[in-house]
């Protein structure tokens, strides 16, 4: 038995290909994390993260790095939801996502949901470091348990920096053993799906997004920088996705 758990780092780097498109000089799969290039739209390269759905298991240390260079456009999705599962050995699993986007680069980071399965323990950290002039659309969705199931222990931290300034730093801890009140009326209130959509556009500097509530489950929140957060909570993954998709449409086409 592998008592240390799996250690894997998958990497992708996007650069302009010199013909108006985007090439991927680095596309490295590792262990359970496989990256596949798929047909992209227009000038962007598209990558699918596959195989991550069986993990992470307890004890695993998984990481994904995406680096978008000036002028490149990259879209990353995943083939299916990621399940956090209890491992053979005790101890939490870790899943680290590190995203960097240079001035004039654009990254769409749109993985499928992360499902916290009963008995699992996972710490997810997502950190996006953007240069001034970079663009980002990042969606994260956490689902607490499969249908009707108690969730595992999930801690998720999301940090976004623009030109060295942290504009968003948020951690959500839920499931058995999380600090009290996580399922109460201030935090999740019995809802089982929670998500964030971060949009960074240089144009927001001059024309900031307007704050607004979207019903009782979501809000559009301009951050202290050229960025906005949509935070949403819903009874299940499907309704959460609808809320985030609806909010996403409010930002309109990226013309700046």
């Amino acid at each position: 038995m592998n008592t240390a758990g799996v250690r894997a780092v998958a990497r992708v780097r996007a650069c302009p290909d010199g013909r108006g498109g985007t090439c991927l000089p680095v596309l490295e799969s590792d262990g359970p994390l496989a990256l596949r290039r798929t047909r992209g739209r227009g000038t962007e390269a598209q990558v699918l993260l596959v195989g991550a759905m069986s993990g992470p298991l307890g004890g695993d240390r998984l990481a994904v790095r995406a680096d978008v260079r000036p002028g490149a456009r990259l879209r990353v999705g995943s083939a299916a939801a990621t399940l956090a599962l209890p491992g053979q050995q005790a101890g939490e699993a870790r899943y680290d996502v590190r995203l960097t986007v240079a001035d004039g680069g654009e990254l769409h980071w749109l993985p499928e949901q992360l499902v916290s399965v009963r008995g699992s323990e996972l710490l997810v950290t997502t950190r996006a470091d953007l240069d001034r002039g970079a663009r980002l659309v990042l969606r994260e969705e956490q689902v607490l348990g499969r249908a009707g199931e108690e969730p595992g222990r999930l801690t998720s931290r999301l940090t976004v920096r623009i030109a060295g300034r942290t504009v968003l730093d948020q951690q959500l801890a839920c499931g058995p053993g999380a600090p009290g009140g996580w399922d109460g009326p201030a935090v999740l209130g019995g809802l089982r799906a929670v998500g964030q959509l971060v949009v960074v556009r240089p144009g927001f500097e001059d024309k900031p997004v307007t704050a607004r509530a979207l019903g009782e489950g979501a809000a559009v929140l301009p951050l202290p920088g050229p960025a906005a957060l949509v935070t949403a909570v819903a009874p299940d993954a499907l309704r959460l996705r609808r809320l985030l998709d609806g909010a996403s449409a409010l930002f309109g086409p990226a013309s700046d």
Binding site: T166, A213, E216, G217
Partner: peptide, 21 residues
């Protein structure tokens, strides 16, 4: 300051924006 906790409460955020209106 990155060492400081960042614990968040989604419902407080969502409702704060609704309440402001």
């Amino acid at each position: 300051v990155d060492a400081l906790p960042a614990a968040s409460a989604p419902l407080l955020e969502v409702f704060a924006q609704a309440h402001a209106g």
